[in-house]
Write a protein that binds this DNA or RNA. Structure first.
Length: 426
RNA sequence: GGAGGGUUGGCUGAGUGGUUGAAAGCGGCGGUCUUGAAAACCGUUGACGGGGCGACCCGUCCGGGGGUUCGAAUCCCUCACCCUCCGCCA
């Protein structure tokens, strides 16, 4: 969330940001927030005055009692003050709750370099890499290639669970495992610390990273108030919730391979065929904690790391700079990487890399100072970033379609072959 | 799932209704002594919010949240976490 003081001092900048992000409902929350904040600040002043009076008097009563003098009149008098303090405290609590709720509804501000736009059509292609492969035959979509050899079995997934839960088999499963090792090894080389994280998180974690209350319907909720993670970002980023990090030790770079679960309610049609959109998928995620000064360089570095993987796999791709209207609630700046899908003749989003600036850190209460928790002085907020490297299903789709042969076999990219243990899927 | 015990400042650990934001020790910081260091001794040392140019002043904080009371670290309720024992279990 944004800093309350910043909102108080720059309400117009926040209003502009909400309009640019196409989130009209948030305007109402902002206006409520400003009203509640104003009332709360007046109430605080009154409350502190009465609390001071009560505190002084109760000390005085203590003195009288110790001396054996009569404290009854003063105690009766203070009864009224105490009642007033209680009334003000109750009102203060309800205002605090309202302020907290409204604050969660206010989106992050877009960075100055983000283009204004109302929808995905206004995103800007900032980079293209590779050339579309040519075939001596009509290239097939990945679901045909995969189904022919049983590498991906969508019907089995439907029987076992339901639509959107693919089953990988044989060399298809081997490809999944190979990609995991390939991605994680390259990220280890790039300085990322590997984690294995819980696949369920509590409501506090989901709130801190911005899934709640904004995207509640998109997560699977299980018993005991837990949610299946829609991305390991949620688990990783909460690692440092309520902590003060040592500024000199930053940046912290983490990666984790995990299953991800998304309800994707309302999705249908050709966009969801095959592996294009599923409810459970694997992903290797990157998360960074940096100083505010370093976060935009870190965004570029993280993006370059993801792009290097696509290049090592030999997959043609383009990088999009997301416009204000297509960016989402928590992000200040976001790039999407899309791999070319020759069998479908369309771009597939395989990675999304974002800088949240201090938006998550404020919710997380993750701060930094020289010396960390034991250090001295006022702690400052850190910036958080995350990105995928990469999402498996669409990467697998792009590999199958890009490297397909007419006989239905698929060449394994040279850099990936050692991880898969073979150079040809057949 | 059942029974019991616990959660206090950077750490250890006192404190069961009235100048307790909190003893003591450790650690940290400053000083004395010393060529320097160590040891010893002396002093000092929590966080957050608000106010004032400032010496300072006010408020909140003893796991979280409520309650009782003129007054709560201390009493009551509730939640979370940790420990011990029993049960169950890959």
């Amino acid at each position: 969330m944004l800093d309350l003081r910043f909102i108080r001092e720059n309400p117009d900048a926040v209003r502009r940001a909400i309009r640019a992000k196409q989130l009209p409902d948030a305007l109402e929350s902002l206006e409520q927030l400003l009203l509640a904040d104003e009332e709360y600040r007046l109430l605080r002043r009154d409350l502190e005055e009465k609390q001071a009076l009560r505190n002084a008097s109760s000390k005085h009563i203590g003195e009288l009692k110790r001396k054996g003098e009569d404290a009854e009149p003063l105690m009766r008098e203070m009864g009224e003050v105490a009642a007033e303090v209680k009334r003000l405290e109750e009102r203060g609590r309800s205002l605090e709750a309202r302020i907290g709720e409204c604050l969660l509804e206010v989106p992050n501000l877009p960075h100055a370099s983000v283009p204004y736009g109302e929808s995905e059509h206004d995103n800007v292609v900032v980079k293209e890499w590779g050339t579309a492969p040519s075939f001596g035959f009509e290239p097939r979509p990945h679901w045909e290639i995969a189904a022919a050899r049983g590498w991906v079995d969508l019907e089995a997934g439907v029987k076992i669970t339901g639509a959107g839960f693919p089953l990988f088999r044989g060399q298809g499963a081997r490809l999944v495992r190979g990609l995991e090792g390939f991605f994680l090894d390259r990220l280890a080389d790039a300085g990322y610390t590997e984690l294995v994280v819980p696949l369920m998180v509590n409501a506090a974690s989901a709130t801190a990273t911005g899934q709640l209350p904004d995207k509640e319907g998109q997560m699977y909720q299980v018993q005991d108030g837990y949610y299946l993670i829609p991305t390991s970002e949620v688990a990783i980023t909460n690692l440092h919730r309520d902590e003060i990090l040592d500024t000199d030790a930053l940046p912290f770079l983490y990666t984790a391979y995990s299953a991800c679960f998304r309800r994707e309610a309302g999705s249908y049609g050709k966009d969801v065929r095959g592996l294009n959109r599923v409810h459970q998928f694997d992903k290797v995620e990157m998360v960074a904690f940096t100083t505010p000064e370093a976060s935009y360089d870190a965004l570029e570095a993280m993006t370059a790391t993801s792009e290097a993987m696509l290049e090592a796999l030999g997959l043609g791709y383009r990088r999009l700079l997301m416009c204000t209207g297509d960016m989402g609630f928590t992000q200040a700046k976001k790039y999407d990487l899309e791999a070319w899908s020759p069998g479908q003749r369309r771009w597939l989003e395989v990675s999304s890399i974002s800088n949240m600036e201090a938006f998550q850190a404020t919710r997380l209460h993750t701060r930094m100072r020289a010396g960390g928790a034991a250090g001295k002085g006022k702690p400052g907020l850190v910036h958080t970033l995350n990105g995928s490297a990469l999402a498996f299903p669409r990467t697998i789709a792009a590999i199958l379609e890009t490297y397909q042969n007419e006989d239905g076999s698929v060449r394994v990219p040279a850099a990936l072959a050692p991880y898969v243990g073979r150079e040809l899927l057949s």
